[in-house]
Simulated scan of single mutants.
Amino acid sequence: MSEQQVKTTLLDVNVHVAGPADGPTVLLLHGWPDDATTWATVAGHLNEAGFRTVTPELRGFGGTRFRSADTPRTGNSGILAYDAIDLMCPSSDDLGHSAVFRSGGSGPSGVRG
Rank of each mutant, 00 (worst) to 15 (best):
S2T: 06
E3K: 00
V6D: 00
T9F: 11
T9R: 13
T9I: 09
V13Q: 07
V15N: 06
A18Y: 06
A18T: 10
P20L: 07
A21D: 14
D22C: 11
D22Q: 14
G23Y: 10
G23N: 07
G23T: 07
P24N: 05
P24L: 07
T25Q: 14
T25Y: 02
V26G: 01
L28D: 06
L28W: 03
G31Y: 04
W32F: 15
D34A: 04
D35W: 09
D35C: 07
A36D: 06
T37M: 07
T37N: 09
T37Y: 07
T38W: 04
T41F: 11
V42F: 05
A43D: 06
A43M: 11
G44A: 15
E48P: 08
A49F: 08
G50D: 01
R52P: 13
R52Q: 12
T55S: 12
E57W: 08
R59N: 07
G63W: 13
T64V: 05
R65D: 04
R67T: 01
A69E: 12
D70S: 14
T71Y: 10
N76S: 07
N76C: 08
G78M: 04
I79V: 05
L80W: 05
L80V: 09
Y82C: 04
D83K: 02
D86G: 02
D86H: 00
D86W: 02
C89A: 15
P90Y: 03
S92C: 10
D93V: 12
D93A: 15
D93R: 14
D94P: 11
G96R: 14
H97T: 12
F101C: 11
S103P: 14
P108R: 13
P108K: 10
G110F: 14
G110L: 13
V111R: 02
